[in-house]
Amino acid sequence: MTALVEFLADKRLLIVLDNCEHVLGAAGSVVSALLGSARGVRVLATSREWLRVTGEQAFPVPPLAVPGVDSSEDGRALDHGVAEYEAVTLLEERAVAVLPGFRVDRDNEEAVARLCRRLDGLPLAIELAAVRLRMLSLEQILQRIEDRFRLLTTKHRGALARHQTLRAAVEWSFGLCSPAEQVLWARLSVFAGEFDLEAAEQVCAGAGLAEEDILDAVSGLVEKSVVSPVQRGTTMWYRMLETIRQYGREQLAVRGEEALLRRRHRDYYLAGVSPLVRS
């Protein structure tokens, strides 16, 4: 480290560190040492969590933009500008690589929009879905999307293991969570929509996770981009992407807590504790 710091001391460089989440301590130490001694060096680090070093500034990277739906009863995709959405662009680019004649047009744009929405605009999920277009139509993929973790796989040589299946990617994130965060991730999966901190505390506290620990666990999941904060007036609400939620439901079933948490969720909202029900 001393030699590296001395070499960079008078340099003007941008150093890029990719995927730091599994080596946060080491990455933070290296970045602190470099920035403290090499004033002309800047670091761009990608990570699911902050490095927690002096001067750090976060730039959240949200999922790709997906087409919305109009107000019609059948929920058809908006019929203008569908191809301009980031998720649709990525799907088309990756689909052409395996199916040269594929194009997003008036005949398939509704199915494309629905697929991108169901995949939460997640780039890896979209890329894996595009690979399936070699053998399945868009409608067939949509019919099987409830079992997305089995459907979305590939065997791309040279790709990291966690990039070859959607399950492996989500399991990677799950493994980076603390035991308390893993328990909360599973239990929060009973919320189909947005929830507030009070709801999380009342529904999710129990064996292995005390009510007073919920705040820190939610904070940890937000920092790891598992849970997304949503400002609603003067209150902060939270939500999980459907892909993340489905994995949590699997873990809840493994823990044998699904029936219990569903009852708690039901009882909480039937009691009218929350002034705004988003379930």
Score class of each variant (00 low, 15 high):
269 Y>R: 03
78 L>D: 01
169 A>S: 11
45 A>P: 04
81 G>Q: 00
19 N>S: 02
97 A>L: 11
220 G>E: 05
79 D>G: 11
54 T>S: 13
79 D>R: 15
159 A>G: 06
60 P>M: 09
75 G>D: 03
145 I>L: 14
173 S>E: 05
72 S>W: 10
209 L>E: 03
74 D>V: 08
260 L>P: 03
118 R>W: 08
208 G>T: 10
192 A>I: 15
40 G>S: 05
221 L>Y: 09
197 L>G: 11
44 L>A: 13
201 E>F: 04
94 R>M: 12
249 R>V: 03
226 V>F: 01
117 R>S: 12
32 S>L: 00
275 P>W: 00
198 E>T: 15
69 V>C: 09
43 V>M: 04
131 V>K: 07
135 M>N: 08
26 A>N: 02
9 A>M: 06
217 A>C: 00
124 L>F: 00
80 H>N: 09
23 V>C: 01
124 L>C: 03
241 L>T: 13
197 L>S: 12
135 M>I: 13
88 V>M: 13
232 R>A: 07
156 H>A: 10
219 S>A: 15
143 Q>N: 01
268 Y>G: 13
69 V>Y: 00
104 V>K: 05
98 V>Y: 02
12 R>P: 12
61 V>L: 13
122 L>S: 06
83 A>V: 01
115 L>K: 02
79 D>T: 14
23 V>N: 02
218 V>A: 06
162 R>G: 08
232 R>F: 10
103 R>C: 00
117 R>G: 15
269 Y>D: 03
27 A>E: 05
177 C>N: 13
231 Q>P: 02
247 Y>N: 06
277 V>M: 07
150 R>E: 14
160 L>T: 13
187 R>A: 11
179 P>I: 07
223 E>L: 02
240 M>L: 13
27 A>M: 09
50 W>I: 12
91 L>W: 02
279 S>D: 10
8 L>S: 06
110 E>N: 14
124 L>A: 02
160 L>W: 15
194 E>F: 10
262 R>E: 15
146 E>T: 08
67 P>H: 06
248 G>I: 01
160 L>Q: 11
54 T>G: 00
177 C>D: 01
269 Y>L: 05
56 E>N: 10
126 I>C: 09
146 E>I: 08
63 P>R: 12
34 L>K: 04
113 A>S: 10
178 S>L: 11
227 V>D: 01
188 L>T: 02
45 A>H: 03
206 G>E: 10
244 I>M: 04
118 R>P: 13
101 G>H: 06
63 P>E: 10
84 E>K: 04
81 G>F: 07
91 L>G: 11
71 S>N: 15
33 A>S: 08
155 K>R: 13
6 E>K: 00
76 R>P: 05
240 M>K: 01
22 H>T: 04
35 L>W: 07
270 L>V: 13
232 R>G: 06
156 H>V: 12
62 P>T: 05
147 D>K: 09
175 G>K: 06
39 R>I: 12
100 P>T: 03
241 L>H: 15
16 V>S: 15
251 Q>D: 03
143 Q>G: 14
156 H>M: 12
23 V>Q: 02
67 P>I: 15
112 V>R: 06
106 R>Q: 00
